[in-house]
Design a protein around this nucleic acid. Structure first.
Length: 597
RNA sequence: GGGGGAGUGGCCUAGUGGUUUAGGGCGCUGGCCUGUCACGCCGGAGGUCGCGGGUUCAAAUCCCGUCUCUCUCGCCA
């Protein structure tokens, strides 16, 4: 390697981003700045793929044009930082790399400025091999240079921009709410921040801006949104980070459908803007009870049309001990049809049985219609005629497979829901390019918390019950439906919201319902109850998970691929090392002492 | 808190008790090459096989412990 020293910019100005150059730029003199993505040194001719956040363009150094320039270019190595001035021209030889957006153009270099060198890399920027994720996080600044990551980050920007444009056009204010807030008793664990000036007291980081956005409605600000960071001190997953971002929305003087329509507009706008995909103006809606009955899930994946059907009546008493016993215990027999799998092998059916096992369904039965025949282990109990009637009723034609199981109604549906998805997955029926949206509505108000032996709010305790069910709040609380709604995309919960309570009396009833004493309610949420007494308007809102939304649009399975600096599964930021120990001096300042076991 | 998977030069990996002096690719490096495009060709450096202990004549390979990464159940109003 010959000697050289990095140069200053010296007033150089970039004229173009690498990835933006096209045939129409041929003949222009351009100044580019970026990184050496690849070099191809042919001896006498050097090709450099120059990369910046926009993409890659080929640059050419020809020894015959300038020997001095050529010598300088020969020291370039991967990820050197350079500025290049040259003539953009149509490629002399057509590119073999047809995927390259800049394939029609190359830059004949006239000036090269080496702005910085680069040591051999701990992870490679080229995308042929993917380094261990821990290493990627430690060297995130290199990882983010990958075209795919740059694309994801750009997409995220585009989405947030699009969200802001949309809500602005609809008369929403973007309002920041506090990050240092009061700890709340319900829900996830809070991150705590000790207060230096208030010894022994703590802030919490917000799990959501819920109460503040409701205060904004009481304030008469009418329409609020925020790209809001939220914090939950719970264990991590591929789709769960301790800090995550929500598109948080609240509106006054509206009912449920006004919110749904507003969000349908947003989704339509977003998908057109980012993917060029036309989402229906009105999205399908389904009550929670129906979603569980038909799909065994409160977030059904509608890309798969295998619908769970209750065939208890059709099958009736068969003489088959297992099914008859189930019937006697008041259990149900349910199943669904797998299209085109009537000829499935024993091995495939065994695989489906494994799916059943994983969903804690010990017994899975099959009825196969194949080339005019009916095959089933149940045949000797059902008889061929009944089996056929069952198939017809379920919509199973020749060539299809019926999957059946018995159990307690609700758990059976849930288990079959899992099996349904596993089978669909194994048959590659889940097309990632297909986007099936669904509003799940009429969620239950409460669920029973076994451990704490009390009711808890299924959504959150600020959710209004459906007015028609409110009279059952005390007498039959588990039957009360809430004015809550989820937006589901391909089996993934994208958004969750509700019509809020805006009257003190109703809010007190709900707090009481979840076992919060008057004193506790007053201590934790007194300001909310007080505020409701001063002319709180009817209001409703929703929050969309920006990370998941972006991941789905980007075609990524992990939200870490669309977050610039995510944390690992232990909640550690491998780049900075956070969380870290602090000095005794710092601890003393915030009046804290360790008590480590 | 529980369960599964993984850890081999800077990176990705092959190797499941002895043919291993741990093989290949990328990267790095010396040389050749004027139209490559994951350029090509010839050479070179770089490894206590995560760490500690054990079993064995012999351990990257089997066992135990431990650390790290990852997936997952619980948890996530």
């Amino acid at each position: 390697m010959s000697e050289y020293s990095p140069e200053p910019l010296n007033g150089l100005k970039r004229t173009d981003y690498c990835g933006d150059l096209r045939l129409k730029d041929a003949g222009r003199k351009v100044t580019l700045m970026g990184w050496v993505h690849r070099r191809r040194d042919l001896g006498g001719l050097i090709f450099i793929e120059l990369r910046d956040r926009s993409g890659i363009v080929q640059c050419v150094f020809d020894q015959n044009v300038s020997n001095e320039l050529f010598e300088k270019a020969s020291v370039l190595r991967n990820e050197f930082t350079v500025a290049i001035i040259g003539q953009a021209d149509q490629r002399k030889v057509p590119a073999k790399n047809a995927d390259l957006a800049t394939k029609d153009i190359e830059v004949n270099v006239e000036e090269l400025h080496i702005l910085n060198t680069c040591k051999p890399l701990p992870i490679q920027v080229s995308e042929e091999q993917v380094a261990d994720e821990g290493l990627r996080m430690k060297y995130r600044y290199i990882d983010l240079r990958k075209p795919r990551m740059a694309r994801n980050i750009a997409l995220r920007h585009k989405i947030t921009k699009s969200v802001r444009d949309y809500f602005d056009s609809k008369g929403f204010y973007e309002i920041e709410t506090p990050i240092l807030v009061a700890s709340t008793p319900e829900g996830a664990r809070d991150y705590l921040v000790p207060s230096r000036v208030n010894p022994g007291k703590f802030y919490a980081l917000p799990q959501s801006p819920q109460l503040y956005k409701q205060m904004l409605m009481v304030s008469g600000l009418d329409r609020y949104f925020q790209i809001a960071r939220c914090f939950r001190d719970e264990d991590l997953r591929a789709d769960r980070q301790p800090e995550f971002t929500q598109i948080d929305v609240e509106m006054s003087f509206v009912e449920r459908d006004d919110v749904l329509e507003m969000i349908e507009g947003l989704i339509h706008h977003l998908f057109t803007d980012t993917l060029g995909i036309e989402v229906p103006a009105k999205l399908q809606r389904m009550p929670y009870s129906e979603a569980l009955e038909k799909y065994g899930s409160d977030k059904p994946d509608l890309r798969v049309d295998m619908v769970i059907q209750d065939v208890t009546e059709t099958i009736g008493k068969t003489g088959f001990v297992i099914l008859d016993n189930a019937l006697e215990q008041g259990q149900k027999i349910k199943g669904f049809v797998v299209k085109g799998k009537g000829g499935s092998t024993r091995k495939e059916q065994d695989k489906y049985k494994d799916f059943g096992q994983n969903a804690s369904l010990p017994g899975l039965f099959f009825i196969a219609r194949h080339e005019g025949n009916v095959k089933s282990s149940l045949l000797k109990y059902l008889g061929e005629e009944k089996a056929l009637t069952l198939c017809e009723k379920m919509g199973a034609e020749d060539g299809d497979l019926v999957v059946l199981a018995a159990g307690e109604s609700r758990p059976l549906s849930v288990a079959l829901g899992k099996v349904r998805l596993d089978i669909a997955n194994s048959l590659n029926l889940l097309n990632p390019q297909e986007y099936k949206f669904l509003w799940v509505v009429d969620f239950p108000m409460y669920s029973w918390n076994e451990e704490e032996n009390r009711l808890e709010a299924e959504h959150h305790p600020f959710t209004s019950p459906l007015p028609s069910d409110a009279d059952k709040l005390e007498s039959a609380p588990l039957e009360v439906r809430a004015a809550a709604y989820d937006l589901v995309l391909n089996g993934c919960e994208l958004a969750s919201g509700s019509v809020r309570i805006h009257q003190r009396e109703m809010q007190e009833r709900i707090f009481k319902g979840i076992g919060l004493s008057i004193e506790e309610a007053e201590a934790k949420f007194g300001f909310l109850l007080t505020a409701f007494g001063y002319g709180a308007p009817p209001h409703a809102g929703i929050a969309l998970g920006l990370d998941r939304l972006t991941a789905i649009i980007a075609g990524e399975t992990s939200i870490r691929e669309v977050i610039a600096f995510p944390k690992n599964t232990n909640g550690i930021d491998l780049l900075s090392g956070a969380p870290v120990t602090v000095t005794d001096e710092q601890m003393k300042l915030v009046h804290l002492k360790y008590d480590l076991d």
